[in-house]
């Protein structure tokens, strides 16, 4: 088991494995997404209160889940890279940041589009929208710091510190925003999360969540392959790889 783990940590092995995995995962992702969207947009009945406009949850909720999940992956792999100096963990962490920021952005956009018919305005300082916005800034901080430092190994370590500090702060930020929100927002806003959700809506939602997870996997592997090539451009395996193929 450990030899496999060590092999996984070696860049050339990971590069080949990722290259082999990507097409399969991409097919799986496309299949799940088609199934989830068909189930969500066509098969699921309209909501008795929100009509058709609730259907945006099939995009909004999975991307909001992913925005937090990717941050966790980024912080954990950043910590692994920081403590044990594993190159691959650093690559996973830094490649996750832009993907996570995109999920956060998608969650914000879909949230505000959903807010228009529900709240009558695109933006409300709702607790969840606000903490999602701050999460986006945390992601952008990681990306900006990583981009600003020339030496990518140093940059990855610095970005890992930011990610770890962020993970400690996310719960604090979330609960403080919730506290602030309950005090300042009048109770006229209807809570959007249904206490119980019908299976005809829940199943497509879960399928979409799975599809987003697989999509993250595909995007992560593609980015990590790129990042590895760029970082290891002076190593023998990359030269061999590039030398053999006509560019």
């Amino acid at each position: 088991m450990w030899t496999w783990f060590h092999r996984l940590g070696s860049p050339p092995y990971f590069y080949r494995l990722a290259g082999w995995l990507v097409p399969w995962l991409a097919v799986l992702c496309a299949g799940l997404m088609v199934a989830g969207l068909y189930g969500g947009l066509v098969l699921a009945p309209p909501d008795y209160q929100q009509g058709e406009s609730y259907r945006i949850i099939f995009i909004h909720v999975p991307s909001a889940w992913m925005s937090l999940f990717v941050y966790m992956v980024m912080a954990v792999s950043g910590a692994i890279g920081f403590i044990w100096r594993m190159k691959l963990a650093e690559v996973i962490a830094t490649s996750s940041a832009p993907i996570g920021a995109s999920f956060t952005f998608l969650a914000l956009i879909t949230g505000s589009l959903w807010g228009k018919p529900m709240w009558g305005t695109y933006w409300v300082w709702d607790a969840r929208l606000t903490s999602e916005l701050l999460l986006l800034f945390l992601y952008l901080g990681v990306i900006a710091l990583y981009g600003a430092i020339e030496d990518k190994r140093v940059a990855a370590r610095a970005a890992a510190i930011v990610a770890m500090v962020g993970v400690v702060n996310i719960p604090i930020i979330h609960y403080s925003v919730e506290w602030w929100n309950t005090l300042h927002q009048p109770a006229t806003i209807t809570k959007l999360d249904e206490p119980s959700i019908d299976a005809s809506m829940l199943i497509p939602l879960l399928i979409m969540a799975l599809a987003f997870n697989v999509f993250y996997g595909v995007a992560l592997l593609l980015r990590a392959r790129c990042e590895l090539l760029q970082r290891e451009r002076n190593s023998s395996w990359v030269r061999e790889l590039v030398g053999r193929q006509p560019i």
Partner: peptide
Amino acid sequence: SLLVLPLYVP
């Protein structure tokens, strides 16, 4: 400012 200000929110 990008790193620090979001953490100042609480």
